[in-house]
Nucleic acid binder design. Structure first.
Lengths: 132, 132
DNA sequence: TTTATATATGAGCAATCGCTCATGTATTCA
DNA sequence: TGAATACATGAGCGATTGCTCATATATAAA
């Protein structure tokens, strides 16, 4: 899921053209950036956002926020095939956004990561605002 | 960017198998889901998350959070080609996450959408937490 | 045990993404 | 005016995504 971005051509020919006009400030910014957001952390964040970047997964999370549900019911609710839902649940499981428990031949899924659902809700509110 | 998810095969053969055991509750959940998260809104949210689902765009946003910067400087800071940065800035512009102003032949970009940057920060904090 | 149900998963395909490379367009400088 | 700089953009390629379809597994029902 999102291969770590290849370094492209290492330090493109560009080099020290336009940015050397104010080299000190830029070094400060780079220092801040590197410490606050390393390549590794950017990668982790991107992978988390990627899980939320699909309308069907968002719909699954939305119904799971209301109640625990089995795969079959989820498929009926979001109108997807059970296979498609199962695949989607796998990526939600892998990213630990949901938990599950088996009961008989059914598997009941529920929301696990409240932090991420807060993010969901923040964006849900955001897209409703007209101030675009 | 993220084509509206095709309805797949409309209402897969699945139909009324497992979910008809508790039809009333599921109708309630579906009603909630549809009103809270329509297909259209899920699509909008997914597109927003998709913008954040790339490590290089996150790095651009991170440095833009520190200060206004031109394309050339951004390229130097995130170590990408200016063309790649320009392409990325286009998607950030299209989604109104950044603003820009021209000054001579340079174009200075800055953060525009504070709400989305709050989301950025929430996820940045989240990935640092050990409680996984 | 045999059959059906509920879910998981691998292969594979069409669509999308993010880059490079080539090129176009302003703007500045000589 | 002509060359160089800063940026934008289209084409196109390799990688990734999200589905379907076929198939596997586990549990329940007959």
């Amino acid at each position: 899921m999102i291969a770590p971005s290849q370094p492209a051509t290492p330090d493109p020919a560009h080099a020290d053209q336009c940015e050397t006009r104010h080299p000190i400030d830029l070094e400060q910014v780079r220092a801040l950036n590197v410490s606050v957001l390393t390549a590794d952390k950017a990668q982790q964040m991107a992978e988390l956002f990627a899980v939320l970047a699909d309308p069907n997964r968002l719909r699954l999370l939305a119904v799971l926020a209301e109640r625990e549900l089995c795969v079959c019911d989820l498929a009926a609710l979001v109108k997807l095939s059970e296979s498609a839902v199962s695949h989607q649940l796998r990526t939600l499981r892998d990213r630990r956004l949901v938990r599950y428990r088996k009961q008989g031949r059914k598997v009941y899924y529920s929301l696990k990561d409240q932090h991420i659902f807060d993010v969901y809700r923040a964006v849900a509110d955001h897209v409703d605002e007209p101030e675009d």
